[in-house]
Design a binder for these strands. Structure first.
Length: 449
RNA sequence: GUGGCUAUGGUGUAAUGGUAACACAGGGGUUUGUGGUACCCUUAUCGAGGGUUCGAUUCCCUCUAGCCACCCCA
């Protein structure tokens, strides 16, 4: 039997071994976290630009709530019983601040900001737009990451159904605008808390009578989150679901009229949508209208939700504010980009430079450093590689970048006060006065179009 | 969190119980001032740890990660 000392020594050796090999390995990305690489930036810029212009055009003001918030903000808003709060939040305790979490979504923060800053005294409704990272500790797969990005539009302070329709319309227009017209808009109403309670009672009664035929998950849902029963995709439960009472038949007059109005507006706006009586959303704060955007190719079986939203009239009170009606949408950026790629939608032109500046020799290098600055100020997009000395290597690079023209500045040109302009397509070169570089270049570049 | 599949260089792919092949990309070069078409050189302790074995990248186990489905959501 080994002595205590031996055991300790062994453990120590083991530890240092691990430490050593770990320190030699380069640090890896955390699970579910991703770098947004240069090759993908054009998609991000494209979406960002479009989102910005939508915010602008529809009169939404930008708000950037912090990424870290009090845990209670989300527990109270999203709901204790939801998966997001129960098992998906990145939370930790910060000295003196209690439990803080990396935000899993932004609507709660926006509402918190509305309350905190007394936006109730602003002309209503208040229209806000956000963009940023969200965090959910989920098992990653494609279109599902632990850090992902959303942007969203929220209209706070008005209960008119036209607001609901407008949010859906904006979302629809956004997808049309970026070229993703193969989407389906799923719409439903889950009523207000009062009539929902009645409906849930009814639903539970119905499902209880069929309890023996339910799958394990649904038995759990029956007590935990009855609305989710409607989400089950199991064949056996589908049958039961088909006969289940529909929420639309149980919501009260006010909720029903509201929903009819929303649908009417959508019809007027010529937006095609699908009434989905089983659509319920996972966040507790929703009331009345709920909707989701799905990719319309059912063949792929991809059930990933591109965007989702709805009305959340009850949220303000839950967070200690005055009762305020509101509606909004959150759009998943990664998932939207995935669809753009899937549909091979071309995005942006890519920023290829107009000209490559090549230099040979020390004097020329110094002079081209200055010329580069001059060209940049003239808004000519110029590429270079001052670190390379050989002209061959520089032209090779110029070729790879696909520039039309190359400027060549060597010892001889410096002496003569000239510079070479080479047409990379024809290989024709001309000698021009160094002082006329900008003027000549501009002439050539504008000829291109 | 549960289940299934997978794991070879920067990327995409081979092969094999005796330490890895090919393509592309990258870097360097073919006497130092010319690219897009050539040629040469160069880039992997085969995800991590353990086991079986004379010997494992190849077989087994564990872990980790990715993908898919579920759960849930964007």
């Amino acid at each position: 039997m080994p002595t205590r000392a031996e055991v300790d020594a062994k453990a120590e050796a083991e530890k240092s071994k691990v430490k050593k090999s770990a320190s030699n390995k380069s640090p890896q990305l955390l699970r579910g976290f991703k770098d947004i690489l240069p090759v993908d930036q054009k998609y991000w810029e494209f979406i960002r630009k479009t989102a910005d212009s939508f915010a602008n055009g529809y009169g939404f003001s930008r708000i950037d709530p912090p990424i870290l918030e009090e845990a209670s903000l989300f527990i109270r808003s999203i709901g204790k019983q939801t998966d997001i709060v129960e098992k998906e939040m990145f939370s930790f305790s910060d000295t003196g601040q209690g439990t803080v979490v990396l935000r899993p979504e932004a609507t709660a923060s926006v509402v918190r900001a509305y309350i905190n800053h007394g936006m109730i005294s602003l002309p209503q409704p208040v229209k806000l737009y956000y963009w940023g990272p969200m965090f959910r500790r989920e098992r990653p797969q494609s279109g599902r990451q632990r850090q992902f990005h959303q942007f969203g539009f929220e209209i706070l302070g008005d209960d008119n159904p036209v607001i609901d329709a407008q949010i859906i319309s904006i979302t629809n227009n956004f997808y049309q605008q970026i070229g993703l017209n193969q989407i389906s808009i799923q719409v439903n109403s889950i009523g207000c808390p009062d009539c929902r309670k009645v409906y849930i009672q009814e639903l539970v009664t119905y499902y209880r009578s069929k309890r023996k035929m339910l799958c394990e998950d649904c038995k759990k849902r029956l007590t935990k989150n009855p609305l989710r029963l409607l989400d089950c995709k199991k064949q056996s439960c589908e049958v039961i679901k088909a006969e289940a009472p529909q929420i639309i038949d149980w919501i009260d007059e006010e909720c029903k009229t509201h929903f009819m109005k929303v649908v009417e507006y959508l019809d007027e706006l010529n937006i095609s949508y699908i009434l989905n009586p089983t659509l319920v959303r996972g966040l507790d704060y929703y009331s009345k209208t709920v909707f989701e955007i799905w990719p319309s190719d059912k063949e792929e079986g991809s059930q990933s939700v591109l965007a989702g939203g709805g009305r959340y009239d009850g949220l303000f009170e839950v967070l200690g504010g005055q009762p305020t009606p509101a509606a909004g949408v959150a759009i998943g950026i990664e998932r939207t980009i995935l669809q753009l790629k899937h549909k091979e939608i071309k995005v942006g032109k890519g920023l290829s430079p107009d000209v490559f500046l090549a230099q040979i020799g020390d004097q020329a290098k110094v002079k081209s450093l200055l010329l580069f600055e001059q060209l940049r100020k003239e808004k000519i997009k110029v590429a270079e590689n001052f670190a390379k000395d050989s002209l061959k290597a520089q032209l090779e690079l110029a070729n790879k970048l696909g520039v039309r023209y190359a400027l060549i500045l060597g010892q001889k040109e410096v002496m003569d006060g000239t510079i070479l302009i080479r047409d990379m397509e024809s290989g024709v070169q001309e000698i021009i006065d160094f002082n006329k570089t900008v003027q000549e270049l501009k002439k050539k570049i504008s000829n291109k179009f």
